[in-house]
């Protein structure tokens, strides 16, 4: 099995924020926190949205004290209902792809008993929890950021893709090596 993740091509990204707004809307509709799970990030080297890479040995899942983050269905899932807002995952994430945000999601209000005691909540009825990309796995259309991007800068990378790219790169490496040796002969 391979993990899956969404990645952007900075040569195409316009930094237009359409992906972020689509992310907010799709999750809000589902009763999740209405915050973006990817972040358009400017840098002189290029611009692209940054989001969870769904690491195979995910540090966020390792540090989560309440097992709110687990690795299943070829991805890293965060259960917003279980999260206690301790921020450890956000600190551990090597991509800065997890944020801690604060309004109570409707799903939590509906099932208060599913919550472990939240020692870090600082205001009654208003707790902060970890927010991260879930590849819109509740939506049969797949990740909405990929769907709405006007330049198709974003794509969902799945196991087969990486293998295909590697094959292409190996083919390129052979061509390069051949050229070097031919050059040496000539």
């Amino acid at each position: 099995m391979f993990n899956r993740f969404v990645i952007a091509n900075p040569d195409r990204c316009l930094g237009c924020y359409t992906c972020m707004a689509a992310c907010v809307v799709n999750h809000q509709k589902q009763g999740f926190q209405a915050y973006p799970r990817l972040f358009v990030t400017y840098s002189p080297a290029g611009t692209m949205p940054v989001q969870c890479h769904h690491c195979e040995d995910a540090p966020c899942a390792l540090v989560c004290p309440v097992k709110a983050i687990e690795i299943k269905d070829q991805m890293v899932k965060l259960n917003e209902g279980l999260c206690i807002g301790c921020k450890m995952c956000a600190l551990a994430c090597p991509f800065g792809a997890i944020t801690i945000q604060g309004a109570p999601p409707p799903s939590v209000q509906a099932e208060p008993t599913s919550l472990l005691s939240s020692l870090l909540a600082w205001l009654a009825g208003h707790k902060t929890i970890g927010i991260k990309c879930d590849l819109c796995d509740f939506d049969e259309e797949g990740p909405q950021c990929v769907r709405v991007c006007p330049t198709k800068a974003l794509q969902l990378v799945e196991g087969g893709d990486v293998e295909r790219w590697s094959k292409l790169k190996r083919a390129g490496a052979v061509t390069g090596a051949v050229a070097i040796f031919k050059g040496a002969e000539g």
Binding site: D11, L14, G15, T18
Partner: peptide, 16 residues
């Protein structure tokens, strides 16, 4: 163009 006319910027990316 990328921010103020994104869909024209898209044509520029296409050309590139």
């Amino acid at each position: 163009t990328a921010e103020c006319h994104p869909l024209i910027a898209r044509q520029v990316i296409k050309a590139k």
